[in-house]
């Protein structure tokens, strides 16, 4: 998705001003001559400045549309892929504590393999092998506590 420079400029200006406004509510710290508000204010001001400059240059360049969609947006398959990648990550974050790493990782990989068109008979073995290998590397060798979830009673 491409935004017209004018539009991204306006967004940045709004973001910058919001930050400055938020920072105005930060209290000063007794004993410190520079409070916690100064840096956010400078940054917010900088963003607002960039926003104004972008709006100006965007106006000058002129642009056909405010928002220009990439050509993949027209193709449902690709939109689905995009949603799938995001959805897979959300699924992992929500499910891993309950289901455990093995099940979540397997489903995560199998789902993505399936929709990226990996040959069917390879999906389950590759997904299982990668999940096991990652678990061995991170959990066993590097002692990262990947959650067990449902399989807790088999934990090693």
């Amino acid at each position: 998705m491409r935004l017209n420079d004018t539009l991204s400029g306006w967004l940045m200006l709004i973001l910058g001003l919001t930050i400055v406004a938020c920072a105005l509510t930060f209290p000063p710290m007794p004993g410190q001559n520079i409070g916690p508000a100064l840096f956010p204010q400078i940054i917010g001001g900088g963003l607002a400045f960039c926003g104004v400059a972008l709006v100006r240059s965007g106006r000058r360049a002129g642009g056909p549309a405010w928002v220009e969609m990439d050509d993949w947006v027209g193709r449902p398959r690709m939109v689905f892929n995009f949603a799938l990648v995001v959805g897979a990550l959300v699924f992992y974050a929500l499910a891993v504590d309950t289901l455990g790493f093995f099940i979540t990782g397997f489903v995560f990989l199998a789902g993505l393999f399936f929709s990226f068109g990996v040959r069917r008979r390879w999906i389950a073995p590759v997904a299982a092998a990668v999940t096991l290998a990652l678990h061995f590397g991170f959990y066993t060798l590097l002692r990262v506590p990947l959650p067990w979830g449902w399989l807790e009673r088999f934990a090693w």
Partner: peptide, 9 residues
């Protein structure tokens, strides 16, 4: 198509 999901995990 195999690599990208693995990278993501």
């Amino acid at each position: 198509n195999v690599l990208m999901p693995v990278i993501l995990l």
